[in-house]
Design a binder for these strands. Structure first.
Length: 716
DNA sequence: AGCACGCCGACT
DNA sequence: GTCGGCGTGCTC
């Protein structure tokens, strides 16, 4: 070890650390060249490993650089890897005031590791404070955070902000309960309904790391099935983590875990628990007192010790997408965790995303599915009402309520509650074929065509090219129509049509958890459907057009997922359960609903995405900023050679007032956006290029900010 | 981002 | 000579 860089503990006999700055001050006055490293001669430093490598928590500024600090002797014991520290961080060589050296202000950081010496050639400042001896940042969590930062071209500090909850001293003071010994292996329960279900549980219980995409049968059993997978993993002596989309799902899995495991074996991590309780639960997990976790998306980082299983429910739900930078998706984070910890992976849903299908198609995960007979036995009968039916149906055109729907509701109400799903308001209409309703796409890059004012040319939402002579590649038609919105009124009319029956509503403001099994009309927006005791007798899914006409790539998948989520609450067709969907029966998502084949739908969708160069087969990133800032960024970034830049296109100007959209430019500023697309396998190269350019831009003080978003959710 | 350092023109 | 303009670059 070199005494040149000082921090070797060699100078313990000299001046106290505060005087270091004075020493350096006099050195400077003596005009010794500054390049020569000076020593911390005289500082009372830790005798072993006197250097602390620290991640300074200061936004995007540093982009994953560590800074070395000297460890004063009195902090030696507490300054362990993983603790929160405070350090002085600021410009210049520091001023001297009252005999103390003062850099910038005190800022927070994490102690990453202790070293014998630093590779930094200047003098080291001392750690100012160890905030608490609790080692919150484990090596695994750091590795995961780093992988997530790389995947999303974000900074480590940003990811750690998502991964480590704010400290609460009171929560730290309390001792966590003593860990319980592993439970015995559970029964397979209803996992026997799936072809390889029992084998999957067996593998978990014997320490294996199976990976599966699980297409769950409709009905309420899924939460118990998840709980049994957790129990099997615990019985192997390992920990397990379950991430679900919302508080209602957490409550279901929580109850199932209590039923299967008993009290005290699992923690619940949700954002709405309040900071102290949340940190207390998190600490119990970190300390190894609790080995099983269920929670919403922030729990994806839960520091479960000796992780044996990560499980995710309903990855198509967009609440799995973290809104804070760098906006990681729970599915991708859990994929990274499964790879890093070599643990089992379970991705379950009633429906199926293209990403899930890709995991199976690529061979990374196996399918966990029930036989067609099983599906037919538990799924409701699905019927459709398309345009032709509506055209023939004069009464329906007036009331917008088709006869078939009317009959299904009336018949259903004789046997129990009937669910009516109405879409939420607020999606942008885009252009589709007026004849067959296929979305109108750009012939160059397959982006969505956006309608201008009537008469004006169509323009691509991705590359900005005009389309002067569009015709439909599906049916040859060349009439366009904007997709229409609006359905709440239909439900109100429905309520008036059945005056003897109570109408209950469940939506954003007021979400019902369950409804009794008595006849009632239950009007709900997607995602807010209450569970009915004994299942709904029937469900009516209104305005499929609105759902399918949504601008983004996932319109079909999303519509199917929402329909299936509602239909999964309906009794099986053997028990008379019926679903009526008002949508064209020739459309692919509608057919998939009728056949109850979400996996087949996702597989076909995946094939198409591969052909068109869409994610998740290729990877995309969106970069946005003012025209000037964007141009500057694009001229500086060294993209992988395969990368394709689409655009720029102007973004809609954010207007003041009303709810601010996440990811929208500052109010009143005209921003532009490009999409960058790379082929399979080049995602990491793309992310690293974008990150490097961002970092260089910060250092060079480039004009204006650009936002980088890997896996943009709204690509048309 | 702050903040100090440094290399140029007008002042006691 | 030296006080201080803001252009550059660093922060352990």
């Amino acid at each position: 070890m070199s005494s040149e860089n000082g921090v070797t503990g060699e100078g313990a006999e000299g001046a106290p650390p505060e005087q270091l700055a004075l020493i350096r001050e006099s050195v400077r006055k003596a005009k010794v060249p500054r390049a020569k490293p000076r020593t911390w001669r005289g500082a009372a430093l830790a005798k072993q490993l006197p250097v602390a490598r620290v991640l300074v928590d200061k936004g995007v500024l540093h982009l994953d650089r560590y800074f070395d600090y000297a460890v004063p002797e009195e902090l030696d014991a507490d300054a362990q890897p993983g603790v929160r520290v405070r350090v002085r961080f600021g410009a210049g060589r520091g001023r001297v005031r009252d005999g103390r050296r003062e850099g910038g202000g005190l800022i927070d950081g994490f102690l990453i590791e202790r070293l014998a010496e630093s590779d930094y050639s200047g003098p080291l400042a001392a750690l100012a404070q160890v905030v608490s001896p609790e080692r919150v940042l484990s090596e695994e969590l750091l590795g995961l955070a780093r992988a997530v930062a790389d995947r999303y071209a974000g900074s480590l500090a940003d990811v750690l902000q998502l991964a480590v909850p704010p400290r609460s001293a009171r929560a730290e003071q309390r001792p966590s309960p003593a860990p319980l010994p592993p439970p015995g292996a559970p029964q397979a329960g209803s996992w026997g309904r799936y072809e390889r279900g029992s084998a999957f549980l067996e593998s978990l219980a014997t320490g294996g790391a199976p990976r599966a995409v699980w297409n769950a049968l409709p009905g309420p059993e899924w939460s118990e099935e998840l709980a049994r997978a957790v129990a099997a993993t615990l019985s192997s002596g390992r920990g397990a983590l379950v991430v679900v989309p919302d508080g209602r799902a957490v409550a279901r899995v929580d109850a199932a875990l209590t039923a299967v495991l008993g009290e005290g074996r699992h923690a619940v991590l949700t954002a709405d628990a309040g900071p102290e309780k949340r940190y207390r639960e998190w600490l119990a997990v970190r300390r190894g007192a609790v080995r099983a976790v269920v929670g919403t998306r922030a729990a994806m980082f839960a520091p479960v010790q000796d992780l044996g299983l990560v499980a995710l429910w309903d990855d198509g739900d967009d609440s799995h997408s973290e809104p804070h930078a760098p906006q990681p998706h729970a599915r991708e984070v859990l994929l990274l965790r499964a790879a890093q910890d070599k643990c089992a992976f379970l991705l379950g849903s009633w429906s199926c995303t293209v990403e899930a299908a890709q995991l199976v198609e690529s061979g990374w995960a196996g399918p966990l599915v029930a036989s067609r007979e099983q599906v037919r036995a538990v799924a409701p009968l699905v019927r459709t009402v398309g345009d032709q039916d509506l055209a023939r149906d004069e009464a329906a055109r007036a009331a917008r309520l088709p006869t078939l729907a009317w009959q299904a509701v009336r018949e259903g109400l004789r046997h129990g509650p009937v669910l009516v799903q109405v879409p939420r308001r607020g999606y942008v209409p885009r252009m589709a074929c007026g004849n067959c309703r296929a979305p109108a796409r750009c012939r160059h890059c397959s982006g969505p065509l956006e309608g201008q004012e009537s008469g004006a040319a169509l323009k691509c939402g991705w590359c900005g090219r005009e389309e002067p002579a569009w015709h439909c590649p599906e049916c040859g038609g060349f009439r366009l129509r904007a997709q229409v919105v609006g359905a709440r009124r239909t439900a109100e009319e429905l309520g008036r049509a059945f005056p003897a029956v109570p109408v209950r509503t469940s939506g954003r403001e007021h979400v019902l958890d369950t409804v009794p099994g008595a006849p009632a009309l239950v009007v709900s927006t997607p995602g807010a459907e209450p569970v009915a005791e004994g299942g709904y007798a029937a469900a009516l899914l209104l305005d499929g057009w609105a759902m399918l006409g949504r601008p983004d790539l996932r319109a079909g998948e999303d519509a199917l997922r929402r329909w299936i989520a509602a239909a999964a609450l309906v009794r099986g067709q053997g028990a008379g359960g019926t679903v009526v969907v008002v949508a064209e029966p020739t459309l692919r998502p509608v057919q998939a609903l009728v056949r109850w084949d979400p996996v087949g739908h996702a597989v076909r969708e995946l094939g198409e995405r591969a052909e068109l160069g869409f994610p998740p087969v290729s990877r995309m990133a969106a970069v946005s900023g003012t025209g000037e800032a964007l141009a500057g960024f694009l001229s500086a970034v060294e993209l992988p050679v395969e990368a394709e830049v689409l655009g720029p296109v102007p973004l809609p100007v954010t207007t003041g007032g009303g709810p601010r959209r996440v990811g929208a430019p500052p109010v009143g500023e005209q921003w532009e956006r490009v999409l960058v697309r790379v082929p399979p396998g080049r995602g990491a190269a793309l992310a690293s290029a974008l990150k490097a350019a961002q970092a260089a831009r910060m250092a060079a003080r480039g004009e204006g900010v650009v936002w980088v978003r890997v896996d943009p959710p709204d690509i048309g």
